[in-house]
Amino acid sequence: MKRSHLIAIAVIAIAIGVLISASQDMTTYANFAQAAEKGDRVKMVGQLVKDRPVEYDPVKDPNYLSFYLRDDAGEVRQVILRAGKPQDFERSEQIVLTGQMRGDVFEASDMLLKCPSKYKDEEVYVRSEKQ
């Protein structure tokens, strides 16, 4: 057998091995019910529930943020993130979390905010300087 064939086989073998091992790093998108069922780390997409309290008091602890999230099934649960509160948190229209359920609370390890595109939702700003 030619060496190039050996290399090709080795490459394919390694590729399959890597793919199998890399698939361990994958997770699926889930809602609260599915996350509770799985018990494992999942990705979750939802919206901030604006009429429930957002708890962040840096005087007490600058690394503790708690809020309520509505998942795509409509269920509302408390979410805890041990990090500072991002500046534009309240403006977010969608939140993507990674984390897992602990009891009734979803403990997130990271959070990505989708804020309304600055130029789509904004209205024409009326100049007030001209009097």
Partner: peptide, 14 residues
């Protein structure tokens, strides 16, 4: 529902 990386940074670094 779609798949995603649990922790992209750790995955890529590894």
């Amino acid at each position: 529902v779609g798949a995603a990386l649990k922790d992209p940074v750790a995955h890529h670094n590894r």
